[in-house]
């Protein structure tokens, strides 16, 4: 029996949709253990989302339909993104080529834009503060993303994530080349900032003055808030997937449509994502959060790595 490409594609979305809260739960648990706490259950994010879906939705007096539509738009973007990247297979699926890395970046940017717009729409000071900060730092992260894409384009002569993954799998020489390592490191820094992690942000903090991503959703409630929370868990898993399956460890993917291969691909993806999450949790626990004004310096470091990756390629080597 062989699964059809369409079925696998649907499975990609389902894996991200239902796996994301699990990955988040495991990371939260590991993080708590590192801090000497017992921590919540691994399945806690699922319970949180289920609870929020049964609550009523409240919204600020002057908010319009934008406030209500934004979480749905963002959630849809996170459902589209797994169609475009290699989540489970080594070969391109039917809809896999409708957008390249730039296109996938735009989809994520649209989601962030929708959430920021809703935060601005709420009229609440903290939400607006969060949205303005998030947009400021996203603008600083943009050049890093661009240069990582340039590096990938110079390495593979395309900008398709599937081709980059295949290139990395091809030989050891492709892995140890400095351009690849620098681009991967730059993407890792970008990922830390985009998933609201130290040293840019404390994702579990309750102090509004230090918040960036978390503050944007303060005014949402009920099912819409559940969508936002679920969406941010999915965003985290999606960025991890790009990092793992495109740049760092594209092994364990299914090369045929055999059900056994696909199941193994799902298990290995979640396993790798959890391992990466543990590494991120260790970083989270070993560094202090940067002062807000120092975040630009952090972004400059990421930019440096990405630019060096491109420069080394232009030297004719790397």
């Amino acid at each position: 029996m062989v699964l059809s490409p369409a079925a696998i594609q649907a499975l990609q979305v389902a894996t991200v949709l239902f796996g994301a809260p699990l990955v988040q739960g495991v990371i939260a648990r590991v993080e708590a253990r590192l801090q000497g706490r017992r921590g919540p259950r691994v399945l806690q994010p699922y319970y949180d989302i289920a609870k929020l879906f049964s609550k009523e939705t409240l919204w600020p007096d002057h908010a319009t339909w934008v406030f209500l539509a934004a979480p749905v738009v963002a959630f849809c973007c996170y459902l589209i993104f797994p169609l475009l990247i290699p989540v489970l297979t080594t070969y391109g699926l039917p809809l896999g080529y409708i957008a390249d890395i730039f296109g996938s970046g735009f989809v994520l940017a649209l989601a962030a834009f929708a959430v920021a717009l809703a935060a601005a729409e709420s009229g609440a000071p903290y939400a607006q503060l969060g949205s303005s900060r998030a947009m400021t730092f996203a603008a600083l992260g943009e050049p890093i993303f661009l240069f990582v894409v340039f590096a990938v384009a110079l390495i593979t002569a395309t900008d398709l994530p599937y081709v980059e993954a295949a290139t990395v799998r091809a030989s050891v020489a492709q892995i140890v080349r400095p351009a690849h390592l620098l681009a991967a490191a730059a993407f890792f820094l970008l990922m830390l900032s985009d998933t609201g992690r130290i040293p840019v942000e404390t994702h579990s903090g309750t102090l509004e003055f230090g918040m960036i991503d978390e503050a944007r959703t303060l005014e949402h409630s009920g099912p819409l808030f559940a969508l936002l929370k679920w969406g941010s868990a999915m965003k985290q898993l999606l960025l991890y997937t790009v990092f793992i399956n495109v740049l760092v460890a594209p092994w364990g993917l299914a090369s045929t449509g055999a059900p056994g291969d696909v199941v193994w691909a799902i298990v290995s993806l979640l396993g790798k994502a959890i391992l990466l999450g543990c590494a991120v949790a260790v970083i989270d626990d070993s560094f202090a959060k940067l002062r807000l004004f120092k975040v630009a310096g952090f972004m400059a470091a990421g930019f440096l790595l990405a630019v060096l990756a491109v420069l080394v390629l232009f030297l004719g080597a790397g």
Binding site: L154, I155, T156, A157, S171, A173, A179, L313, G316, A317
Partner: peptide
């Protein structure tokens, strides 16, 4: 665009 040459290990 041609892919950049790969350096040896």
């Amino acid at each position: 665009l041609a892919a950049a040459p790969v350096p040896s290990v």
